[in-house]
Design a protein around this nucleic acid. Sequence first.
DNA 1: TATTGTTATACTCTATAACTATA
DNA 2: TATAGTTATAGAGTATAACAATA
Lengths: 159, 159
Amino acid sequence: MAIMRDIAELHEPEALARLVSYRIRLVQIAAYKTFEARVSGHGSAPRYYGMLKLIEANPGVPQARLAEAIFLDRSSLVPILQELEREGWLERRAAPQDKRVRRVFLTPEGAGWLVALERDVEEHEARLTAGLSAEDLDTLHGLLLRLDDNLRDVQAGRV
Amino acid sequence: MAIMRDIAELHEPEALARLVSYRIRLVQIAAYKTFEARVSGHGSAPRYYGMLKLIEANPGVPQARLAEAIFLDRSSLVPILQELEREGWLERRAAPQDKRVRRVFLTPEGAGWLVALERDVEEHEARLTAGLSAEDLDTLHGLLLRLDDNLRDVQAGRV
DNA sequence: TATTGTTATACTCTATAACTATA
DNA sequence: TATAGTTATAGAGTATAACAATA
């Protein structure tokens, strides 16, 4: 191939273009940056939207279970929860049955703020998936879940 | 909802489960960790596989164009290129036409190592997409490209 | 004036190891 | 012995601001 002149767009080789792992990585990076650029005024919560929804759906989850669910080390979760607690999103309560455990709950305020944050998330999702029919979305979800299953097999050492 | 007991798996609320952005993020994080755990002995190159393939397909690309292509600031790319150059993967040559520019090329050794690395990438890709037919893959690529297009519209301010 | 590459610097995110208290 | 939460610490990875050289 000739040495490139200073063209605007780089050529994307077919060896990259046909990799699902490559395309997913690029889409995820771009989607995350677009989302972070979009939301503001919610403190540090937007990037933890998924975790906050998990807490909402699993009130009283122990920190260690939460860390596992989002693929973080227990110790990495501590400062995140401390900040969100300081901002009033959540609270932690000692578990009387097992004094080692601190159970995590959304505060009523946090639950309310989450509704507003959810609107931003839904708008971002709508931008991301614009033009896709309900059937397209079902297909996409189904295929992504199959990738997810495959990865769990790898992580569990089943492959 | 009742306060959770210490169950193994957290409940994933429907509001999360139907978000393409959420599922893609989880798949990407898991796929990246699986890949990094898989490859070793290639120095720091595996995480820059995509960039190295771009350099291979666009020999002599200026650093600034490369940074744009992978959504990095020019300054963030500098230490990455310095390390890969030190490891022998690539070289940078001053551009006679424009003395500000340094053009990036794979070394012959780097091109050879990339073949070996590519085998690991392909194996990882095969694990990730196991069970998907050629038609499934076409469908998935098509849908991901439509997400990619939507994000470019957002970034370009067209939406 | 604008662009390219670079450096200095700081910030975010994460993991590891070690600790305590509990089980 | 094992687990839950915490702290101290270090290492990636990134961006911003400022700079010199060049266009």
